[in-house]
Design a protein around this nucleic acid. Structure first.
Lengths: 334, 334
DNA sequence: TGATTCTGCGTTACCGGTAACATTTCCAAA
DNA sequence: TTTGGAAATGTTACCGGTAACGCAGAATCA
């Protein structure tokens, strides 16, 4: 038995037309009669024809439906949701997602980019904005649609779809002050990685400074954000500065971990200590109180990014800066 | 300025050799002198040559480095970790991950498979074992390496890397009994989806039956497993059967959500009610007690699956059933 | 009625690599 | 010096599609 997949030529032969006509029918690119269409489609289906995208993309340089998607990670946090939304949207438009994770290592990013560009993708979706010189050079010379996500970039390489993290932090800072908090702490993770949580912290500090309040005491850890890091960070912070009255965490996972520590230490929330996080993560639903946080629509980020990319690939007009709104949730923990 | 990427022919010309020699050098497939190697590599690097994998894969039928990876979801639960480990391992071996998520819809799976097979991938990694007839037929006729993950399949299509969920449930059932639990409840999600949590429940019930105990009362919800589903499921279960003394949850997220409900309802854990989950998820670290659960090495599943796939692609011998051990953690909540 | 456009389809060349086979070079052994 | 064979390199054909162009016949127009 012949295991080879049937080719376009075989479908065309079976239908009694030329390869080109069969190709036109299968791509629905016009210039064929209804009768021919029916015959080609019937034979394609009968032969279980699976088009060879390698050949198609290779031949035309415009037919690639691969999209490279690079995120820091898939587990924990919100990136899994973002990628889910990206993939769902790309799939809807007939594109495929080529994934990559880089765990905050720039060299990883560069190697990944090189191996993805080798597939001549239709476009790229990249997270974060801090890029190595080599990466930036590759992107410039590649001239393909690139959507930067997560951190809103007002002067994007091409298109940016993201959240204004600075404003999130600033808004939260004002909320801390309006609740009478004055001895404020901050706990973050991935201290060595640029971007991501950093802008939130900057906005937060700015809000305190704008109001003439002193800066927040920061506890920055190295690992990725997690429950445990929040727990540990809160412990460090409270032993260094036992008199702080509130802590802003880099995200909800950390906030929930920090809350667990505070409660175990006998502190009442929000009376003895105020807690706030960021992200509106599912994990926050498990605690009896509603966590003070900023809700972020990760699905909207993913969907908008994918839609913007598809529009760019098709040559449709696209706004180059797309902000995804986030909503402060005052909650009951501050 | 010419925006086209340099081709192999240009590199070869610049190095003063034929395309074929340049190709051999770049693939390191032997049969060239050290001096030639140096010259070709130098020119490739000088011209910023990025090989065209489309052309390579298309030409040789053996050079594809794409691997299709299909999972139910990326956010929540453990699949994000699994995919992370798969991707890291595949990257290490020079392969690329083409991702797909199917949200428990069989038609999605079939459409995804078709679009991935169009790229003539080197292999596939699929989650779960319940497949539609169309999907199974496509896999049979495609004759490419397929690794099934998550549920251990003792008669795999090709290779299976997974966890024995039945045994996990059985072991946990015995623990429930040894702790004197007799009026037992179970809370699961995705009731309509086959596989996944189902085998654990079956094993659990079997353990109870083996010991002559009555079956667990089941509360099966439709949505995907989450904190909220656990909370809600526990509530339903306790209002239907107020006298149950313990609940086995489909996973740790649900268990933590269920615990939150029980505590809010004034039940002491484990005195009034015993709680157990599954998965060893990070979320369990936030609660003050150690959750009774089964630890699963998701990284090991991902890494082993990717390694098995690479071996199969290379033609190396591979065991066709690879069980990833899981460990019962007695914890403090049962 | 002749000229022009449109419709439907075919022909040819090519995308950028790699497999298979052919050829040249070089060195050691006869 | 000749010669055999391995090492290094070149030549040719091809993978399966698509772009560009060509061409006959039908429809439309002046």
């Amino acid at each position: 038995m012949d295991k080879r997949k049937p080719s376009l030529a075989e479908v065309a032969d079976a239908a009694g037309v030329s390869k080109m006509t069969a190709s036109r029918v299968l791509r629905n690119s016009g210039r064929f009669s209804e009768e021919t269409r029916a015959r080609v489609m019937r034979e394609a289906s009968r032969l279980n024809y699976v088009p060879n995208r390698l050949a198609a993309a290779f031949a035309s340089d415009t037919a690639s439906t691969l999209v490279g998607v690079l995120v820091p990670r898939l587990s924990g946090g919100l990136f899994g949701q973002v990628v889910e939304a990206i993939d769902a949207t790309l799939t809807r438009f007939g594109f495929q997602t080529l994934i990559g994770t880089y765990e905050n290592r720039g060299d990883q990013e560069e190697a990944w980019l090189k191996s993805v560009l080798a597939w001549r993708p239709a476009g790229l979706i990249l997270t974060g904005r801090a890029r190595s010189e080599g990466t930036a050079a590759m992107l410039r010379s590649a001239t393909l649609p690139v959507v930067e996500i997560w951190d809103l970039n007002t002067r994007p390489l091409d298109v940016s779809v993201g959240i204004n993290h600075f404003d999130c932090g600033h808004e939260m800072g004002r909320l801390f002050l309006s609740r009478g908090r004055r001895r404020i702490g901050y706990t973050g993770a991935e201290a060595t990685a640029p971007g991501l949580g950093r802008a939130r912290f900057d906005g937060f500090q700015q809000a305190l400074q704008d109001a003439g309040a002193g800066p927040a005491v920061a506890e920055l850890l190295d690992d990725r954000p997690s429950f445990y890091q929040g727990h540990y960070g809160a412990q460090n912070l409270l032993s260094r500065c036992p008199d702080i009255d509130s802590i802003y965490f880099q995200n909800d996972e950390m906030a929930v971990g920090g809350m667990a520590y505070c409660q175990a230490a006998g502190l009442r929330i929000p009376d003895d200590i105020g807690i706030a996080g960021w992200g509106g993560m599912d994990v926050a639903t498990i605690i009896p109180r509603r966590l003070t946080t900023t809700n972020v629509s990760t699905r909207a980020v993913g969907r908008s990014a994918a839609e913007a990319l598809v529009s760019r690939v098709r040559g449709d007009p696209v706004r180059d800066v797309i902000e995804i709104r986030s909503n402060l949730m005052p909650g009951d923990t501050l």
